[in-house]
């Protein structure tokens, strides 16, 4: 009896683990392209997170279409790789399978990549957000990329400052570091440069995935008088839901978040990775496997402000936003003073 029980428990767990892996690591079931480019990406959240991971996935899909579809470029992905050791295993796996370009889409994967990349000198790796290609460690097959998130943050902050009636703006970030912090600081600078007497309240939840606490953070901001809200990470869906229910406006980042709440999302900063992906691919084809770092900026077209057509943004705010984009591009405006 005891043995049977043990076996049954084991079987139950294996079924459970199988099901959860089905959902977590779905390699795109494309036919192997004979001579085409093979690209794989490992992402911390899902391809439909309306944020960081989706921006990269959609960028890769665009490239795939441009190159002539699945026959010319094979695309595989592993999503929900919050767990770094799992992600490292996936990265090594893709490299072993002979993928040409393996992308580690998360700054937390850096140290793993540093160990993996030297073992596969023929493979190109890319990771972000960071600017470190590990060249100093003698590694020459890693590209690095980063978004100048503060630029879009500054522009959206300008719009928020001009649309706010209460003069109070609430920002809910995940962790006080990296891409999120750049965005939060830029947004704050944009508000204060436009309306120096405005109040900008900033909270961090300490998590990229705590939807419930992110919702509570939005509630807190609204209770503190904020009528314009923003935030970063895939957990902001919780905050967007609250903004919609309590009639506050939301500004999105990383991806166009309008579809999450068409009555609340004013505008989003969208990451367009296609330019840098194109350059990585053509570099590789020219024999350069890594050693280049890229940034997404307004100037190089990597950052785009996407307005929600359903919400009327005052002309004054739109032109101030355009002026801010212009100023950031020509260097006269510093989004992180």
């Amino acid at each position: 009896m005891k043995k049977n029980i043990f076996r049954l428990t084991l079987i139950t767990i294996m079924i459970a683990a199988f099901l959860s892996s089905c959902a977590q690591a779905t390699p795109a079931a494309t036919d192997e392209a004979a001579d085409g480019l093979r690209v794989a990406v490992v992402m911390p959240s899902t391809i439909n997170d309306a944020a960081f991971s989706q921006s990269m996935y959609e960028g890769l899909k665009t490239i795939q279409t441009e190159m002539g579809g699945e026959d010319s470029m094979e695309l595989a992905y592993s999503e929900n790789m919050f767990n770094v050791p799992d992600a490292a295993a996936a990265l090594r796996d893709y490299a072993t399978q002979g993928y040409d370009l393996v992308i580690a889409h998360g700054s937390q994967y850096g140290t793993s990549l540093q160990q993996i990349a030297p073992d596969f000198p023929e493979t190109s790796f890319a990771w972000g957000t960071s600017l470190n290609t590990f060249q100093a460690d003698g590694i020459n097959n890693v590209f690095a990329y980063q978004a100048e998130a503060q630029e879009g943050g500054y522009v959206l902050g300008t719009i928020a400052a001009l649309m706010s009636e209460s003069g109070i703006i609430g920002i809910s970030g995940p962790v006080e570091a990296g891409d999120a912090k750049l965005y939060v600081d830029g947004f704050q600078a944009g508000v204060l440069a436009t309306k120096p007497d405005a109040t900008v309240n900033v909270t961090y939840t300490g998590s990229f995935s705590d939807v419930s606490l992110m919702a509570a953070a939005a509630e807190t901001h609204i209770a503190a008088g904020a009528d314009m809200l923003t935030g970063s990470s895939q957990s902001v869906v919780g905050a967007i839901g609250i903004a919609k229910d309590q009639n506050a406006f939301w500004f999105g980042t990383q991806w166009d978040q309008t579809s999450l709440a068409p009555t609340a999302v004013v505008a989003s900063q969208v990451y367009d990775w296609t330019g840098i992906l194109d350059d990585m691919i053509s570099s590789r084809q020219a024999g350069v496997l890594g050693n280049k770092s890229y940034t997404l900026t307004f100037k190089n077209g990597g950052l785009i402000i996407q307005y929600n057509e359903a919400i009327e943004v005052p002309e004054e705010a739109k032109s101030a936003a355009d002026a801010a984009i212009q100023g950031i591009s020509d260097g006269t405006v510093n989004p992180l003073p």
């Binding site: 459970a16 099901l19 959860s20």
Partner: peptide, 12 residues
């Protein structure tokens, strides 16, 4: 096991 099952199935 049940937690992993629920996590996987709801995601799927």
């Amino acid at each position: 096991g049940l937690t992993l099952f629920g996590l996987g199935l709801s995601s799927l």
